[in-house]
């Protein structure tokens, strides 16, 4: 009798848990958030993603609700989500307000530092009952970063300038994820006195004297990177130009605050220290 009740209770408990997790309907409002959710095996719970969520490949089959800077409120509500995952400073504030008002659970993450990435993974793991997987993901990410750090620790730090746009000439400044990426990859951001993404005049950019110029590339942007490269061509006084160290790098790997961040750092480190860090 006791055994029956216990097994019934146990069954009931299992069902409850499984139905609980099965009824989560998640919408991700940024490609990097999508990647993280997939890495935590939460793909079945995702009902919709933002556009350009192209990794992993399966994510491309998911329904979209607009770009991460301009998601459609109607589309979001149409999917009747239980949780929405957003990125601070990317998703428009007024939209987030509306979503909060509509009573849907909103998880917002900032991504200016690799610590933010770890916290995000752990929080998501906790929220959706994937603590173990989250912990493992974090650990492997930390290990990767640690390995790279070891490799580059004693190497000379080149001055790195990351240019993301030609018109206006936009560069990566302090307090951004890419700034941390430069440091983790064994370099130093040539911009030390501007926060965020400053639009520097060419003359001001020249004064920075970068050793390396990196251009994050995403699909369809080949023209832009060509234009940026040719805009530096004639400036041989700049070390990066003189030594032909203007590179494009995989934009998705390096700018996304997700599970592939480690790969992105490795990619960048290889560009910064080609002899010491193999691909």
């Amino acid at each position: 009798m006791c055994l029956k009740i216990r097994s019934l209770l146990y069954l009931f408990f299992l069902c409850a848990v499984s139905t609980l997790s099965a009824t989560e309907r998640i919408i991700s409002l940024a490609p990097d958030l999508t990647e993280t959710l997939y890495a935590l095996s939460l793909q079945d719970e995702i009902v919709a993603v933002s556009e350009f969520s192209n990794f992993p490949k399966e994510a491309q089959k998911k329904q979209t609700i607009g770009t991460f800077m301009a998601p459609s409120l109607e589309k979001i509500l149409y999917f009747k989500p239980t949780v929405i995952i957003a990125k601070r400073h990317a998703t428009p504030q007024h939209l987030l307000q509306k979503l909060r008002q509509s009573g849907i659970h909103l998880l917002e993450f900032k991504t200016q530092h690799e610590i933010d990435i770890f916290e995000m993974i752990l929080q998501l793991g906790k929220k959706f009952g994937k603590e173990q997987k989250a912990k493992r993901l974090c650990t492997s990410l930390k290990e990767m970063l640690f390995t790279i750090q070891n490799r580059v620790r004693n190497l000379e730090k080149p001055r790195v300038l990351i240019q993301i746009e030609l018109v206006p000439p936009m560069f990566v400044g302090k307090q951004t994820l890419l700034d941390r990426a430069i440091e983790l990859a064994g370099g130093m951001n040539a911009i030390q006195h501007h926060k965020g993404y400053p639009k520097l005049q060419k003359e001001a950019a020249l004064q920075l004297n970068p050793d390396i110029i990196l251009i994050p590339l995403t699909k369809g942007d080949e023209n832009k990177s060509q234009d940026i490269q040719s805009s530096w061509k004639s400036w041989v006084s700049v070390p990066a130009v003189r030594h032909h160290r203007i590179f494009t790098m995989d934009g998705d790997l390096t700018t996304r605050a997700g599970p592939r961040f480690g790969e992105g750092i490795a990619h960048m480190a290889h560009l910064l220290h080609p002899t010491s860090v193999k691909k």
């Binding site: 350009f52 770009t67 991460f68 800077m69 301009a70 993301i164 746009e165 030609l166 018109v167 206006p168 000439p169 936009m170 639009k199 005049q201 060419k202 234009d227 805009s231």
Partner: peptide, 23 residues
């Protein structure tokens, strides 16, 4: 502008605002 991708929109907006720095 509303159809443009995130950073594309910034570029276009900057161009529309007028300047002498275009290549």
């Amino acid at each position: 502008l509303s159809f443009s991708e995130p950073f594309e929109g910034t570029s276009l907006l900057f161009w529309l605002m007028g300047g002498l720095s275009f290549p």
